[in-house]
Design a protein around this nucleic acid. Structure first.
Length: 882
RNA sequence: GCCCGGGUGGUGGAAUGGCAGACACAGCGGACUUAAAAUCCGCUUCCCGCAAGGGAGUGCGGGUUCGAGUCCCGCCCCGGGCACCA
């Protein structure tokens, strides 16, 4: 038995044995409960895994290993999100084809995951770019298409000029492309959408029942953005002397000249002093005919300028309000007052009706606009006590004033009364609005799942028949994006030309699906990954779904996690899956930060806002004078050059040390600072485990339970108690993702074990040896999920067969966890003055008298009358004597 | 601006309203060693004190309570997300 942790001598051996024994094959024994543990579907990057990625995989592995040892059937699979922009961009950069590239990268990922001992069942692995997989992505697309939930329409969409494709709203962060950070442009082109908005309310409601971090739920709620209000109609008052509604307007398009507005503050409607149309609003075209010549040019100029503005500039709140007056007026339905109609780009065409009633007294944006353009501001809501307020006053805790018959109502009362009044008169109705937009799924890129649709000569669309799926992505040499708004597939005649269901010449859809479509159902495929006839068998998803524990980064809060929920709900409605939600419990791991060198800027250099300094290499940091260099903790990334790979960490300190370190260093969901010292500390802990095992080894017997009879010595009783307490703590901590305290408990246990060995000396009694054996076996099993190589190595050195993974997780005995004496804190007036030792079964009276007997306590009470004594059993006595 | 997190020793962090600082890193002292590394033992919140002991202390200011790192109110700072959504 080695007496220290020497990973190079055994870790590789165990990984080979686990592989040879097919140890992590998924078990589906009907008598056992199931546990589905899953990591986010990774895109295999050429840089390989860093120790940052391991922060995701190691904790999931720990909980899966414990669950397996506790007797669960565990599904713990891994696959690769190979389709999509990141892979294609990397392939273009390297001037290679993405298919063999991602295959090579995925193999490297697998090698690294195996290197750190993750217990994946690789027999269930696949990549989203495998035809056997994307066949079913297309199949689900077809089901969505048939239900009208996948549709094509022309719309203003986000276009990334660098990636040369459109993007979903979720993929635009602060007006920038999430992949390349280019400024996103607006384009008006036909695109494919998934009607996720049809599920907005359910996506919102069902968040309640999920065990997810509150922050992620909140982000989804905000993204869905539900708001309740009233939508109502405003009539345009045509100018006297101009063309009247009777002649020109009716002749032109037979529609009355009206527009609808949405507001969440109908209670402020009496304060409306103008109305605003978004520049894209179609009514603007019709209004132009009624607008005096001199204004017409100004409005058209304004619209053109708004169109040129990038989405980022348009949405920037720093952007000063602009707009043009149309010269026309609309009628406020509640009081018949005419208010000017403006066109301004602070009203978004994509939300609500694209038109608003503006109440500058009670809306900050309207206030800013009114102030700039000299529009009247009329206060109609005031504090209940009538005190004066600064405008704009947006507080909802007020009453209506100057509002006709509604004057005196509270905001809530007024909203209800006005809503009902409008509904009764047919002017408007109460309505729920969502910020969520439909999910734009088509991409003008090669490396994605082809959309299984055919366009016939008349422009009709039909789905490719199921028996012709998958629509294979053609193998081509040149696949670079075109940039003209079409996919490179559009230029491949053999792909485009096809026949429709009636045998006529037709054209194939040439856009591909964005990568997020592929990752919206992979967790279902893992239940039945090799099914050639169905995406999954009903039995398999009934057994395994939902995912019990889903682990990954928080950056997918409103992308993957929302999309996957939507697909699951759709598939549930179709009767294809038995669950409404895919992921019951979600956990987000923290980042790994590395100390990164910077230098101060030189004279001719300027820093961006928020940029700490000029980032430099470690070599450069060595060369420069120390006062020019400073270090900061930065996220590990290839571009920062501060990445530590698991290969390096394992080479230096071993896989188990890496695992233990990442578990121990900080709470699971917090960012950690990578240090070699910490890693060394983990290795030191494992060495102590080996040393203890080697000391106990001479006394080892498999039937130690028989030796536990009779009275135990004090050190033996103490160690037994520690053993059972540690089992309890470790089990609970792993369950609640408190891996840092799980490891800390093991360290404490090792320290106590060490104290025991020192106390009993080289010749312990038989029962002490038995207690040591129980403690050692527990230690090996408890350490096994965190340090599986070491656990198996020690177990084998003791003569044990098999793998610790297949042994039963230890159980604790509550009675054995109990202390026989307790240390009670004694406070006087809430301040700690002493502690007293009492037997565990001492009565309240005994504890109190022991506390009062303390000289320190007496000196602080100082003879003052005792007003009362607070007694917390097992914890503390507080003597109140003021 | 709004919505989430979070502020605890030299450092990472621990603590169902009940002994603040578990566990570790770093540091210091000691043992072993010719020596170093490794390992082992011990000390390590700050202030006053030789010590015994005393005082202060979980971002700041209030409050609730016998008792607050923990709960409540008002601020400050840091990280993340959203941001002209009517």
């Amino acid at each position: 038995m080695p007496d220290r942790y020497d990973p190079s001598s055994f870790e590789a051996k165990w990984r080979e044995r686990w592989k040879a024994a097919d140890l992590f094959a998924t078990r589906q024994d009907p008598d056992r409960p199931k546990f589905y543990g899953l990591d986010f579907f990774p895109y295999p990057s050429g840089a390989g895994l860093s120790v940052g990625h391991c922060r995701n995989y190691i904790p999931t592995d720990v909980i899966c290993r414990m669950k397996y040892m506790q007797g669960y059937n565990v599904l713990h699979p891994m696959g690769f999100d190979a389709f999509g922009l990141p892979a294609e961009n990397e392939a273009i950069k390297n001037k290679v084809h993405p298919a063999p590239m991602v295959k090579r990268y995925a193999e490297n990922y697998r090698r690294q995951m195996e290197l750190i001992g993750i217990s994946y069942d690789w027999s269930r692995s696949f990549a989203s770019s495998d035809p056997e997989y994307y066949k079913w992505t297309q199949w689900i697309f077809k089901r969505l298409f048939e239900k009208g939930l996948a549709y094509r329409k022309e719309a203003a969409v986000n276009w990334c000029p660098q990636c040369k494709t459109v993007l979903a709203d979720e993929e635009v962060a602060g007006g920038l492309c999430w992949r390349c950070e280019s400024v996103v442009e607006k384009r008006f082109i036909p695109q494919w959408f998934f009607r996720i908005t049809a599920y907005a309310q359910r996506l919102l409601d069902d968040l309640e029942e999920l065990d997810w971090p509150e922050g992620i739920k909140q982000m989804q709620r905000n993204w869905i953005g539900r708001s309740e209000g009233v939508e109502f109609e405003m009539k345009v008052a045509l100018p006297p002397g101009g063309p009247s509604e009777g002649d020109l307007e009716v002749l032109s398009d037979h529609k009355p000249l009206t527009f609808r507005v949405f507001t969440t503050r109908i209670d402020t409607v009496f304060g409306m002093t103008f109305a605003v149309l978004a520049p894209e609003h179609p009514l603007v075209d019709r209004l132009l005919r009624h607008v005096p010549e001199d204004r017409r040019a100004a409005i058209e100029e304004y619209r053109a300028a708004a169109k040129r503005l990038s989405e980022q500039d348009r949405l920037a709140t720093t952007h000063e309000k602009t707009g043009v007056f149309t010269g026309l007026y609309a009628i406020n339905p509640v009081n018949g007052q005419e208010v000017p109609i403006w066109v301004a780009d602070y009203v978004l065409y994509g939300y609500g009706t694209g038109a608003i009633m503006a109440v500058p007294a009670h809306d900050e944006r309207d206030f800013e606009f009114a102030t700039k353009f000299g529009i009247p501001i009329v206060q109609v809501i005031a504090p209940k006590d009538g005190s004066p307020v600064d405008l704009p006053w947006v507080d909802k805790d007020g009453v209506m004033v100057a509002s006709g018959e509604y004057t005196g109502m509270t905001v809530a009362e007024g909203q209800r009364a006005l809503g009902e009044w409008m509904e009764a008169l047919g002017i408007g109705e109460r309505k729920v609005q969502y910020r969520l937009r439909d999910w734009l799924i088509s991409r003008q890129r090669y490396w994605g799942c082809p959309i299984p649709i055919i366009h016939d000569a008349e422009g009709n669309m039909e789905a490719v028949p199921d028996d012709q799926l998958p629509v294979l992505l053609p193998e081509v040499e040149h696949y670079e994006p075109t940039g003209d708004g079409t996919s490179p597939l559009a230029h491949i005649e053999e792909f485009v030309n096809c026949t429709d269901s009636e045998g006529r010449l037709a054209r194939r859809e040439t856009d591909t699906m964005g990568g997020f479509a592929c990752s919206s159902w992979y967790f279902l495929r893992f239940c039945d990954p090799h099914n050639g006839r169905q995406p999954w068998s009903p039995d398999s998803v009934r057994y395994w779904m939902p995912v019990d524990c889903y682990v990954g980064g928080a950056e997918h809060a409103v992308m993957h996690l929302l999309y996957a929920r939507f697909w699951t709900k759709f598939l549930y409605d179709e009767g294809l899956v038995p669950v409404k939600e895919p992921f019951q419990r979600l956990e987000n791991q923290g980042m790994v930060l590395a100390l990164t060198p910077f230098r101060h800027p030189r004279e001719n250099e300027r820093l961006e806002v928020g940029q700490p300094g000029i980032q430099i290499t470690f070599e450069e940091a060595q060369r420069l004078p120390q006062d020019q260099v400073f270090y900061r903790w930065e996220k590990m990334s290839k571009s920062k050059g501060n990445v530590v790979t698991p290969d390096e960490a394992v080479e230096k300190f071993g896989a188990d040390a890496l695992r233990v370190y990442e578990l121990f260093v900080a709470p699971f969901d917090q960012a950690i600072q990578w240090t070699d010292e910490g890693l060394q500390g983990a290795a030191r802990f494992l060495s102590r485990v080996f040393r203890i095992a080697s000391e106990v080894a001479p006394w080892w017997r498999f039937d130690w339970e028989d030796g536990l009879q009779g009275d135990l010595s004090a050190p033996a009783r103490e160690l037994r108690r520690k053993t059972h307490q540690t089992i309890r703590k470790a089990t609970e901590d792993i369950e609640r993702f408190a891996f840092n305290t799980y490891v800390a408990a093991l360290m404490t246990f090792v320290n106590s074990f060490n104290d025991f060995l020192r106390a009993v000396g080289p010749e312990p009694t038989e029962s002490e040896k038995a207690v040591a054996c129980e403690a050692l076996q527990s230690l090996i099993l408890l350490v096994s999920p965190a340090a599986p190589h070491s656990a198996d190595e020690i177990w084998e050195s003791l003569g044990g067969g098999g793998f610790t993974y297949q042994m039963e997780w230890p159980k604790y005995d509550e009675a054995l966890c109990r202390e026989d004496t307790l240390t009670i804190a004694v406070q006087v007036n809430g301040k700690l003055r002493d502690t007293v030792e009492v037997p565990a079964d001492a009565t309240r009276e005994q504890v109190e008298s022991a506390a009062l007997a303390s000289a320190k306590v007496q000196s602080h009470v100082g003879g003052k009358p005792i007003k009362k004594v607070v007694y917390v059993p097992g914890k503390l006595v507080n003597i109140v004597a003021p």
